[in-house]
Structures are given as structure tokens and as C-alpha cells.
């Protein structure tokens, strides 16, 4: 809190005006529209609009496609989160041992952060291309016939790999920062007491890293649920047979291509509720850390 302030009635509003204007026009107004729309239904010709209460939501809950999309999203988000966190943690632990080469390895590992998700999708799409890709060729030698255009599991693997590849760098940087924040004296004391590297990791490093891990867990779930839109659109476009149609892709698909506004709006509202929950969890965690 500032003790010294400026007195002016108009100026603070002028300063806030651009931010608030954009927030109202492009955030709050559309979000309100989505909420209102989610209670309405248009007839087939767009001539009349009726208030239908919760019917759109009920239709959503009864829709096998939506339930499938929920399931797909869960599988996708958990896979992306677990794999990108695990790989990043292993890399961070390895870099933490390095003295002279730490910086070089870090540079060589962090740059994928800057690659657009859409471009990451295109790169892996090419590598996994069933006719000329390298990985299907290698997989063929061990007897696996890769085809993400027809196999649901292959398509899911493709989007998970592309999304994990993009996210490792981010998690890696936060794990490295977390590891550096652990006092060396703790690990030294444990080493003197005879604890080996594995024991030290599970008894000291990992527990002290848990705030970082929890924070990354939330961030990664948000990433997997929302920021991977471009990965999906650039590769599988939700297919084959809805196998990679995650919630955020379905909102877009139903709204723009399917033109079913009521359903798409109800889906938007459900997604907003999910983001709000995740953001609240994230901020509660930060409060906890401040008290630490």
C-alpha cells in the first residue's frame, strides 16, 4: 500500500480507460453474450429465438459426443501434463549437476518455447507422415504400422507428442529455478549422513520442489486444455472419429463450422467455469507461498 498518493478525480480513469474499454468490448461483452446465448435456442431458419432455460446444458450432458470430448480432453491433458513434467524434471536434475555446461544445455533445451504451437504441430505432422515420415519408417522396422489418419491411438499420440515437445522447455526452466532455490546445505547434510542420490531426491529435493511442481501442474493443465488448440487444428482437426476432439476445439468447431450457437455457447460457459476454477486454485497456491 502506498502512503503517498496523487489527488485527481479524472486522471486515474483516463489512465485506465484503454484497458477497461478493451476489457469491456472484447472480453466482458462477448462473455456475457455467450452466457445469454447458452439459455436461448434459435429455430432452424434463424427467424425466432426462444428462451429454453437449461435445455442447452441438458442436451450437452446427454450428448455422447460431448462426453467423448470430455474423456478425450482428460486423457490428453493428463498425458501432456505427466510426460512434459517428468521429462522436464529429469532434464532439470541433470542440468543441476552441471557446473560449466549448465548454461549451454539450458539454451539448447529452452528454445522450443518460442515455437508456435501450430508450427510444432506441422513439424510433428511431417515427421509422423505415414508415407514419407521418419518415425513411421522406424516403427515399421519393429513391426508397427503407424497411421494417425485412421488409428485413434496414433492420432492421440501425435498430438500429445507435439504438445509435450513444446511444453518441456517451460517446465524445465521452472524446475531449474526451483532446484537452485533449495539450499545446498540441506543436501550436503543428507550426504554426510550417508543418504545416496536417490534417497536425497525423494527425501529432500522432491518435497522441497513440491510448490514448483504444484504450480506447474495447474499451468500445464491450462496449457493442455486451451493453448493446444493450434496443435489440434494444424494436425488432426479433432479426428479421426472424434479421437482428438478436445473441448476447446469442439467449441470452435460447433460454433463456426457447425453453426449451432446454443450448444457452442453452453460449451463456452462450461469452459469458462473450468478456467475460473483453475485460476482460483493457482492464486490460492500463490497466497500460500507468500506466507511460507
Amino acid at each position: 500500500m502506498k502512503r503517498t498518493l496523487f489527488n485527481n478525480r479524472l486522471l486515474p480513469w483516463l489512465l485506465l480507460a484503454p484497458q477497461l474499454a478493451i476489457t469491456f468490448i472484447f472480453f466482458l461483452w462477448p462473455a456475457t453474450q455467450a452466457i445469454i446465448q447458452s439459455f436461448l435456442r434459435q429455430d432452424a431458419f434463424g427467424l425466432s429465438t426462444n428462451f429454453v432455460g437449461l435445455a442447452n446444458y441438458r442436451a450437452l450432458m446427454n450428448s455422447a459426443q460431448y462426453m467423448n470430448s470430455l474423456q478425450v480432453t482428460a486423457v490428453f491433458a493428463i498425458s501432456v501434463t505427466v510426460f512434459s513434467l517428468l521429462i522436464a524434471l529429469v532434464m532439470a536434475l541433470a542440468v543441476d549437476r552441471m557446473i560449466r555446461s549448465a548454461r549451454t544445455y539450458t539454451t539448447l533445451l529452452v528454445w522450443p518455447y518460442a515455437v508456435a504451437p501450430a508450427v510444432a504441430g506441422i513439424l510433428w505432422w511431417f515427421i509422423f507422415n505415414p508415407t514419407i515420415g521418419i518415425l513411421p519408417y522406424l516403427l515399421d522396422m519393429v513391426g508397427y504400422n503407424w497411421n494417425h489418419l485412421s488409428s485413434k491411438r496414433d492420432a492421440m499420440t501425435l498430438v500429445v507428442v507435439a504438445s509435450v515437445w513444446k511444453q518441456i522447455s517451460y517446465n524445465f526452466l521452472f524446475f531449474v529455478a526451483g532446484l537452485q532455490a533449495i539450499p545446498a546445505s540441506l543436501r550436503e547434510a543428507a550426504a554426510i549422513d550417508g543418504a545416496g542420490p536417490v534417497r536425497r531426491f525423494f527425501d529432500i529435493t522432491f518435497p522441497l520442489l513440491s510448490p514448483t511442481t504444484f504450480f506447474l501442474l495447474v499451468v500445464n493443465i491450462v496449457y493442455a486444455m486451451f493453448d493446444t488448440f493450434a496443435v489440434i487444428d494444424a494436425t488432426t482437426q479433432g479426428g479421426p472419429a472424434q479421437a482428438t476432439n478436445i473441448l476447446v476445439y469442439k467449441v470452435y468447431f460447433d460454433g463456426f463450422i457447425g453453426q449451432s450457437m446454443g450448444s457452442s455457447s453452453a460449451q463456452s460457459v462450461v469452459l469458462m467455469a473450468i478456467v475460473i476454477t483453475l485460476t482460483v486454485i493457482q492464486f490460492r497456491w500463490i497466497e500460500k507461498k507468500v506466507q511460507y
Binding site: L5, P12, L20, F24, A34, F226, F229, V251, F256, M261
Partner: peptide, 28 residues
């Protein structure tokens, strides 16, 4: 640096944008 009426309201309006990623409200 200023104290004015509805300061907290303005703060919350800005805060809420964090919870509304463009993918979620794309159609409206």
C-alpha cells in the same frame, strides 16, 4: 498511485480477463 471510487471494481474487471482466454469466447 490513486484512490478513487470503484478502484477495486476496476481491478477485478482487469483480473477477470485472465479467466477468459480467446479460445473460450471465440464465437461472440
Amino acid at each position: 498511485y490513486f484512490r478513487f471510487r470503484f478502484r477495486m471494481l476496476a481491478f477485478w474487471c482487469i483480473f477477470i480477463t485472465m479467466m477468459l482466454p480467446v479460445e473460450v469466447r471465440i464465437v461472440p
